[in-house]
Computed example of a mutant assay.
Amino acid sequence: MPHAFLIRAPRLTLPLLAALLLAGCQRDDPPAEAMVIEGHIFGTTYRVNVAGVEAAQRPALEQAVRQVLERDDREISTYKPDSLISRFNRYPGTDPQPISADMADVITTALRIGTLTRGKMDITVGPLVNLWGFGPDKQPVKTPTDQQIAQARQRVGLRHLTVSARADGQWLQKDLPGLYVDLSTVGEGYATDHLARLMEQRGIGNYLVSVGGAVLTRGVNASGQPWRVAIQKPTDRENAVQAIVNLQGHGISTSGSYRNYYELDGKRISHIIDPDTGRPITHKLVSATVIAPTATLADTWDTGLMLLGTEQALAVAKQQGLAVYLVTREGDRFTSYMSPQFRAFLLDEEK
């Protein structure tokens, strides 16, 4: 029986993607023509599965994969003080700063989806993310005060950020010197799309690539079957499958409030920060999965929908024609909803 791959919502200390056999099957050694390349980047895991590639190509492919991911890390990691985005964040002025074409594309996408989610999906929310302990700064020892939150919110807002194209390249500009851009909500999809682009450039037509919780597939696996991706149930139990999909050449990403958290003052603090309140979300939507033409789009939309909450997320998904799978928690009971567009990818759903 073909393998499925489990996609999980983020957590700080666990791998975000793991190979999983469907229930009732035992793991077999992969066929000789299957190749798996994996490792760590961005503080998470990456995985490249390809079929029909000669073993002799492995060293060169491994090197190319690493080069792509390390380049992305040098551009968008807020954990690297010398990254392109870190230098932009430190810049004390408001003059336009040069960025790569890829960075311009992903930031433009984030700004557009930010507008479509009524400002909820906000890549300038970095000061609040750091304040609550989910950025490069350390976890706070006590809950931030109302004054600290208000001060941080003064340095947040998509309206303060502009991308422009000129004859001499792409430029990023802030009109607020203290603006802090955090691309962690889109970075996994961004890097996953770049791995997919690398496969296409090398003439590889059958692959599954993933960085953290973002996945993109093309073609078939080594058994000649479509790649199957399993979405994890929004619980703390490992490898509990909520649904299984065939991506059909699309990207997928899940955002959830139930894994990436810490305990502070007796409360569970989610990593998803609402820019309107300056505080972690507390609503009943616990998981949002999006399938989109690219992993970047899926990775950007899932966070935006999580921030909106169930009712608003459903309204936006319907308006935009999105392939979404939402899970809401009521006490110990979970309720799921999938859009008609998502159902077209569904292979199986656990009830």
Rank of each mutant, 00 (worst) to 15 (best):
Q242A: 15
D102K: 14
M338F: 04
T254E: 10
G43L: 03
I244W: 03
T300E: 06
G212W: 00
F134Y: 01
F342D: 01
S253N: 05
L179N: 06
A196E: 06
T235C: 05
A288W: 02
D299C: 15
I281L: 12
Q139D: 08
A167K: 06
Q97K: 13
R333K: 09
K233L: 07
K284F: 01
T108G: 13
L17I: 15
P81D: 10
E33G: 03
V245I: 11
A240Y: 01
K120T: 03
S336H: 13
Q57F: 12
L20E: 07
F134G: 00
Q148H: 04
S100F: 07
V50Q: 01
D332Q: 14
D168T: 04
T328M: 07
T45P: 08
P280F: 08
W301Y: 12
Q67H: 07
T117S: 08
P226T: 01
A196D: 00
I244G: 15
L16N: 10
A32I: 08
D274S: 04
G278V: 07
I149Q: 12
V286C: 14
T44E: 02
A150W: 10
T296W: 10
T289L: 14
A315D: 05
I107F: 01
A313K: 05
P226W: 12
D193N: 12
V286M: 09
G133E: 11
E38Q: 15
A101Q: 15
S100C: 02
V324I: 04
T235V: 04
S164Q: 10
H160D: 13
